[in-house]
């Protein structure tokens, strides 16, 4: 490939300068390449990108455009007008965030009220540890909810989500009181069941809100972990069993599993909007 051929490659899709156009006229290889790319461009579909001024004039020449507009495109325009008629002003994205935070807060509150009999906090660990881990869980809950619903386009790294959740899980396990509660199996079943039951409502609301934007697995995972964090916090405060094995298999593993379930369910739900 000659340097001129290389320059033609760099200019594919653009108007060629005269020297390169002359080269293409006598170079069989470049004719093959440019011919192929002209086809890929789709002469009736795209052509060169339009300048703003051309776009403005295109928008003003409405009659011509309407003749060429696809029937399906007209449907989209009609849909927009119907949507505007129903709700003229756009609802800010943070309304969904506020709703979900509210649901999480209500879930924690109701869960503690229903589970607690004599004591709100039955975790026998040192109070500073109980408060510290509780704050960490709350922080993850809030951050996960924000990451899940924020319209920021930056890709959420899997590693960050997994590392954060893994670190929190490890912290929960290592800061247990060590106090033995019921038998291992009975405690496991009780806490797993409680965790699943408490998470149902926040997870359902989370999935509904997630389906209003494009599917991103890492975001869905963050959302699921965030929803599960509400029940993790309830268990952290309520459960008197502080052995590492119980905390691992009864609290942390089900919580991580809820994150995976959220990803699975979200991937199968229809998406109402593909916006970031």
């Amino acid at each position: 490939m000659t340097p001129e051929c290389s320059r033609v490659m760099d200019c594919l899709g653009e108007t060629l300068p005269p020297d390169l156009a002359a080269h293409v006229a006598r170079c069989q290889e470049c004719q093959v390449v440019t011919g192929g790319f002209e086809f890929i461009s789709g002469p009736s579909l795209a052509g060169p990108s339009l300048a703003p001024a051309a776009l403005a004039s295109a928008a003003s020449s409405d009659d011509e455009d309407d003749e060429d507009t696809l029937p399906g495109q007209l449907d989209a325009r009609r849909f927009a007008l119907e949507a505007l008629a129903k709700q003229p002003k756009a609802r800010p994205w943070w309304h969904g965030l506020a709703l979900l935070v509210g649901v999480h807060a209500a879930t924690v509150g109701v869960g503690l009220v229903l589970l607690s009999r004599d004591f709100w906090v039955r975790n026998a660990a040192h109070s500073s540890l109980v408060v510290g881990v509780g704050v960490l869980i709350l922080a993850l809950l809030a951050a996960g909810t924000y990451v899940a619903l924020s319209p920021q386009r930056r890709v959420v790294p899997w590693v960050a989500v997994l590392a954060t959740s893994g670190a929190l899980g490890l912290t929960v396990v290592l800061t247990g009181s060590g106090q033995q509660g019921k038998s291992f199996l009975a405690g496991l079943v009780g806490c797993m069941g409680t965790e699943l039951a408490v998470t149902v409502v926040p997870l359902a609301v989370t999935l509904v809100l997630l389906s209003r934007s494009a599917f991103h697995p890492a975001r869905a995972l963050a959302a699921g972990l965030s929803a599960g964090a509400a029940s993790l916090l309830v268990l952290h405060l309520h459960c008197p069993d502080g052995t590492a094995s119980h905390l691992l298999w009864g609290h942390v593993v089900p919580w991580l599993g809820l994150g995976g379930i959220a990803v699975l369910l979200r991937s199968r739900l229809p998406t109402s909007s593909h916006a970031p």
């Binding site: 696809l70 399906g72 495109q73 449907d75 989209a76 325009r77 849909f79 927009a80 949507a83 505007l84 756009a90 609802r91 800010p92 994205w93 309304h95 319209p151 920021q152 209003r212 934007s213 109402s272 909007s273 593909h274 916006a275 970031p276």
Partner: peptide, 20 residues
């Protein structure tokens, strides 16, 4: 592509509140 153009602009309408 025709179907997806519709989906794109319908998504734009539904999620216009997510445009920062």
């Amino acid at each position: 592509a025709e179907d997806l153009v519709q989906l794109t602009f319908m998504s734009l309408v539904r999620a216009r509140g997510r445009f920062l």
